[in-house]
Write a protein that binds this DNA or RNA. Structure first.
Length: 422
RNA sequence: GUGCCUGUAGCUCAACGGCAGAGCGCUUCACUGUGGCUGAAGAGGUUGAGGGUUCGAAACCGUCCAGGCACCCCA
């Protein structure tokens, strides 16, 4: 046997069952997006590297993007994220669009990283953005979209939580502590790493970047203050809105949520599995100016991205997927023997004309095998048309799930099957 | 890019340095007009690759390849 060429590292083969799940996820994402009035769009999968070079994520592009020269020598990138493409698309039509725009997208992205749990090199992302709104109510709406999605796929607040924080609030905390604004990004990074380091290491890290002992203590206390959010008018409003929507259970305040991306300026949020397993399921926030870097006029917005890999793990873990995805066929028509092939062919034609998905056996096999095959692929109904049936203008209809069978007149077959399958 | 772990039948995994095995799956038969259950028989392997140590290696040692996990970063 010839050598099987392995799949590219970090990619996934979507076998039919996997594809069914992917489509199921896509369907739920689309449903929720449309429910809130968002419209679907997409950008190119290939972009020039310059599009990302201007932007914040230095490491994202330099070390994590797939980059290659095309035949003309231009450096092309497999998109590692959607936001820059979105920014361009908006900037190009900024003068003609009516704001705010509500856009969503689901498509593939690539990052050259070491694959591990919840992370592959090729993955799908649901991106949802509200563009051209600075209202806190819009921030709340995006969080509501997330929460509604979780509800829709059958996850409950004990299983996943959306943690929210505000960068403005954290700016205030830093200011109150008299921390030099130049240190802001470093301190954000410090906050982000609190859980990953031992207290000792964390403290050393803090002091090494120039925080005084008292600033460090103050920061530590602020991060432990569960009611810190009450100092933020926007967080209070957001939580109020989500409570009124009946989604409050999904949301909790966490001062340690900072998010890596530099362009977030206001509310930031991410969702996690509650027993702290794995990485974030989604991340998002409010940005002050999406299109500045690509030459547009100042445009605020709020949005989030949800990766399919982590999401699948969570959905799998909490058994949210349907127990089984039906075989695409509803009916299997057996062929009694070679001489009956034309009859069975006509029969399957009849069913297909009536929009009943039907598989006809093409191989010359014993009935036993044909039944076994039907069972294995999960077709619920099997039809037999042999000498006896033919003499009576009948078909034997066997329901593999109920194990019952019945003889039905051919002229009554379609309505009979439709009833069975309903 | 750094570190750790794992590669044995189609799948999940056993086998003290001493004849490569089990369960599930698969094929055939019991069942010449009916799947799932039961019973019987059978097929299936260069133990990831190529070296070394040894009387003898799936096992021990180093190299390569592949996969997993953690760090980094992030969905």
């Amino acid at each position: 046997m010839a050598q099987i060429i392995p799949a590219v590292k970090g990619t996934r083969d979507f076998y039919p069952e996997d594809m069914a799940k992917r489509n199921w996820i896509y369907e739920k994402m689309g449903d929720v997006s449309r429910l809130f009035g968002y419209v679907e769009y997409d950008g190119p999968f290939l972009e020039r590297i310059d599009l990302y070079a201007a932007k914040s994520g230095e490491e994202l592009v330099k070390e994590q993007a797939f980059v290659f020269p095309d035949r003309g020598g231009d450096l092309i990138t497999l998109r590692p994220e959607l936001t820059p493409s979105l920014a361009r698309m908006i900037a190009q039509k900024q003068k003609q669009l009516v704001f705010p725009q509500r856009w969503w997208s689901f498509g593939p992205f690539w990052r050259y990283e070491r694959p591990q749990k919840g992370r592959t090199r090729e993955f799908f992302q649901w991106n949802v953005d509200m563009l051209g709104s600075d209202a806190v109510e819009s921030d709340a709406e995006l969080i509501a979209v997330c929460a509604t999605f979780f509800k829709k796929v059958g996850l409950n607040p004990d299983q996943v939580q959306i943690m929210i924080n505000s960068r403005e609030l954290m700016d205030l905390v830093l200011k109150d502590l008299g921390i030099n604004p130049d240190l802001k990004m470093s301190v954000f990074r410090l906050i982000d790493r609190k859980d990953k380091l031992s207290f000792q290491e964390w403290q050393e890290f803090a002091l090494s970047m120039g925080l005084t002992q008292s600033q460090f203590e103050g920061l530590k206390d602020a991060l432990n203050d569960k009611s810190l959010w009450k100092k933020s008018e926007s967080l209070e409003q957001i939580i109020g809105i989500l409570n009124r929507m009946g989604l409050g259970d999904f949301v909790s305040f966490d001062p340690q949520i900072i998010r890596g991306l530099d362009y977030y300026t206001g509310v930031v949020f991410e969702a996690r599995d509650m027993d702290k397993e794995g990485r974030a399921i989604l991340g998002g926030g409010h940005y002050g100016n999406l299109v500045g870097d690509v030459g547009g006029e100042i445009l605020p917005g709020v949005g989030f991205a949800m990766g399919d890999v982590m999401l699948r793990l969570v959905l799998e873990k909490y058994q949210c997927f349907p127990e089984s995805f039906e075989s695409s066929a509803q009916v299997l028509v057996t062929v009694f023997d070679e001489t009956f092939y034309p009859d069975s062919l006509d029969l399957s034609n009849l069913l297909r004309k009536a929009d009943i998905p039907t598989i006809l056996i093409n191989e010359k096999q014993k009935l036993q095998k044909q039944f076994k095959f039907a069972d294995r692929i999960g077709v619920p109904i099997v039809l037999v048309l042999g000498p006896e049936e033919k003499n009576n203008q009948q078909v034997t209809v066997k329901n593999l799930k109920t194990r019952k069978q019945e003889n039905v007149l051919i002229e009554k077959l379609v309505p009979y099957l439709k009833e069975q399958l309903a």
